[in-house]
Every structure is written in C-alpha cells, then in structure tokens.
Design a binder for these strands. Structure first.
Lengths: 232, 232
DNA sequence: GATGTTCTGTGCGCTGCCGCGCAGACGGGC
DNA sequence: GCCCGTCTGCGCGGCAGCGCACAGAACATC
C-alpha cells in the first residue's frame, strides 16, 4: 500500500472493487519533465493517473507561442476525453513535473467504463471540473497580472506534486504561462524578494505557502472549491 | 417542417425516432439578446437547442472584466454539462444574438439520455467539440490581435445566426471579447474601412465573407474543422 | 422641434509585456 | 582546473490595449 501522498485521489475515491479492477490493469511508470504524452489530433494510446507527477494541457497559437490551459495531477487523470467517446486528444499533453503515474491502455480503459460504473461517474465529474478550470484559466490568462498567475501555477504544481519543492526552470514556466522567459524571471524575483519562494537553477521551494496563496489570484481558491464541490 | 437554416443541427443528426422523441418535449422559445440563461453555480433548469439564436459562455474575472469563452448556436446546445451528471453551470450563459431556440426541462433531458441513445452520443461528441473550442479560445485570447479575434467572433456569430446581418453593439462585443468598448470601435472601424463589414448603430452586415475569414485568425477555421471531424 | 438616450468616434498619457541583445553565475564532464 | 552548457538577471525601445474624458450622430418620445 502506497502512502496517502502517493495515491491518485480519483482512483482512491472508487469503491474497493472498482479500484482494484483498475489497478490490476495499470502499470507504474515514471514520467519525465517535458515528455510529450499526446499531440493534438493524434489518437490517445494510454490514459494516465498521476501520483506525484503532473501533466499540462498545452495549446499552440502560432509563432512559437504556447499556453498551458489545465494542469492534471493526482486529483484527476489524463485521457478523460475517452469518456466522451473520442480517442484523439484536443491539445498537447506535456509532463509538467516529473514523478510517478499509473498508466493504462486506452482500450482497456474503455472496457472499464461500463454503464453505471463508479469509474465512469468519477470520470464524468472530473471532466466537469476540468471544464471549469479551462474556462477560469481563460479569464485568468486574459486579465490577471503575471505575478498572480505565476503564484497560482506554482501552488497548483506544488499541490499535485505533493511537495513544496520541485524542479522547473523559468524557461519551462514561460512556455506554460504563455510569456517570455524574462517575464517569469521578473515575477519570480519579486516573489522571492518577498520571501514567498526560493529558487536556484530550477529548484523551486515554496517558503510561505499562505503568503503565496495571498499573492495568487482568486482563481487558485476557485479551482479548489470547484473540485471540492464536485468530487470532494 | 422548418427550413434547413432554422433547424438545430445537433438534433437534425439524430435518427428520426430519437429526434421526434426530443422535439415532443421541447417548446419553441424566443431568446432576447443579453438574456441570462444561467449563472455559475446555479442549477440549470432548462437546456436549449438554438436555431437562429446563439448563446455565449461568459466568465467573470473580477473588476468588471468578462470574457466569452465559447459560443453555442444551432450546431450545438446549451446545458451539455448535464451529460456529465452535473446540474450546475460552470459559467454564465448569455444570449449573444436574439432568435429562436428549442427549450427542454433539465429533468426531461436527463430522462432522454438513456444508455446508448443517439442523443447521448451526439451530446458527448459536442462536449468534446466545446472542450476543444474552449482550449483554442484561451490561446486566441492570449496571443491574437483584437482585430483578428473580432473577425473570428463575427464569423462565428454570423454562422450561428444563419445570416450575414445581425444586431450587436460595440459595447456588447467588448464584454464578450474582454476589451474596452473603444477597442472594438477601433478594430471594427478598420474592418469597415477595408469593406469587409458594415455597421451602424448595432446593425452589423458582413459584406465580404471570404475577406473576413482572411482577416480572422486561424482559430475560426480550426473550430470548423474540429466540428467537422467529430460531428460532420 | 426640443429633449434625453443610445451608439459611435477621437485624443492623450500610461502600463504590462514583448523582442532582442548581452552578461554573469553555477555546475557537470573531461 | 578548465570548458561549456544551462540557468538567471538586466537594459532599452516598442507596442497593444487601458482608463479617462469628451464630442458628435442617430433615434425615440412627446
């Protein structure tokens, strides 16, 4: 039995029988940061239930610009669109922070989605949460200051990694927040100056979690509330 | 029998029996621009299948800012989140352009979603398309010039209204594109100068559809392709 | 035709972020 | 110990869109 912090919470919610049925067909894999799990339009070969890793959905907008629109960790799964009967991924899926995940073939996953199954119900609920997060992130990206968005994203990553320390360079963050690397440097420097975080060569440490929550936009809290309401 | 341009295409795709079963429980209603069909968090009382109207999903981001993240017209439906078993709306739903729609109670809609029903399959596919549109719009809002975004939105509205003429003030557009009214004035003036559109006191006419498509970002074409791939 | 409302258009200073170029700091490999 | 690749930091001009204030134009009402 894995410790609580290393469990996928979506699976943990399932009744024992359903959960064991899923686990039986999963392999434990290690995901590396930057690894691309799916490309837009291509068929999804596997679904993933992250444990300590996290996966970002990233859209491209031409001219080398990209933007992370959702972050998937131990609270959810990648490949939920299979629940809608569609095998292709709507966006690119990039491993955001390395760690472990449970992997299952798409075909096997579909077989587990029998009518009325707990997995299907949970998956549907999670899809709703994702939907909500996507919409919120749209507004967040449009209106909120980079520093607030950065704080939000760091908190989200930390929550999903189950740790206040993780590895992530400015360059990498810039791609998922849709800004220049220097923009991240600026914002991160400020957060560091205020003793909310510490980082050096990609190692990020959250020093003052509460302070960071205050520095983040309300979207962070809204995400948590949305998850809690539907899946808590 | 209504003319093709006044039919909801999602319903039109259903096998005859399924479609008639749905139509039997629908009322024909007229939606007025600006009308709010759902508030975030509140339970959804009815689902809508637009015919000549369109409905925008709008998120608020504090400080009076708002942003339209998806547009629903005769190609889809409002209330699709009921397919995920959740009765509440993730965002605000505002009638974007007036026109007719078919309305059905949420309770009745749920009853029609029997296992394996064509309505459910179509709904799931449409949810996927919406998902895709949401993600794309995020990137579009972040990176593309207002003028391109405006062109895209006008085309989307025109397609859903089934007409090259519709009513929409700068102020209203500003709210859904997440910019100042004056920003729309500027962009619209330019499109008009290039003889792509004409407008006066809220009456918008698309003069050169092909030219407007060129003036829009690739997101417009991508939306069409996405719909075609899944539901065409 | 006088009045109030709605809609559209213009000017001006401001700011958050961009693009680019460059430089310093750290660390691993040989 | 040295080199080279990675990561972080800074300066400068530029630009899209913002906030504000104001003005003209069309329409509705009476």
């Amino acid at each position: 039995m894995k410790s609580a912090s290393e469990t996928n919470r979506l699976l943990a919610q399932l009744p024992r029988r359903d959960r064991e049925d899923v686990l039986e067909h999963c392999q434990d894999v290690e995901l590396m940061q930057g690894q691309v799990l799916a490309q837009p339009g291509e068929p999804v070969g596997h679904v993933y239930f992250p444990r300590t890793s996290s996966i970002a959905r990233v859209v491209e907008a031409g001219g080398g610009s990209s933007l992370g629109v959702a972050l998937i960790g131990n609270e959810g799964m990648f490949g939920a669109s299979l629940l809608l009967g569609i095998a292709s991924s709507p966006a690119r899926a990039v491993v955001q922070s390395h760690g472990s995940a449970l992997r299952m073939s798409a075909a096997r996953f579909r077989m587990s989605l029998t009518e009325g199954s707990a997995l299907r119900r949970a998956g549907h609920s999670y899809l709703f949460v994702l939907f909500d997060q996507l919409a919120r992130t749209s507004g967040c990206t449009r209106f909120h200051l980079l520093e607030h968005r950065l704080a939000r994203w760091l908190l989200m990553t930390s929550d999903r990694a189950g740790s206040s320390t993780f590895h992530m360079t400015h360059e990498f963050l810039a791609h998922t927040l849709g800004v220049r690397r220097v923009g991240i440097t600026r914002a991160a420097t400020d957060l560091q100056r205020r003793k909310l975080i510490h980082y050096a060569r990609g190692e990020i440490v959250i020093l003052d979690r509460k302070g960071l929550v205050k520095a983040a936009c309300a979207c962070y809290a809204a995400d948590l509330a949305s998850y809690q309401r539907v899946l808590g």
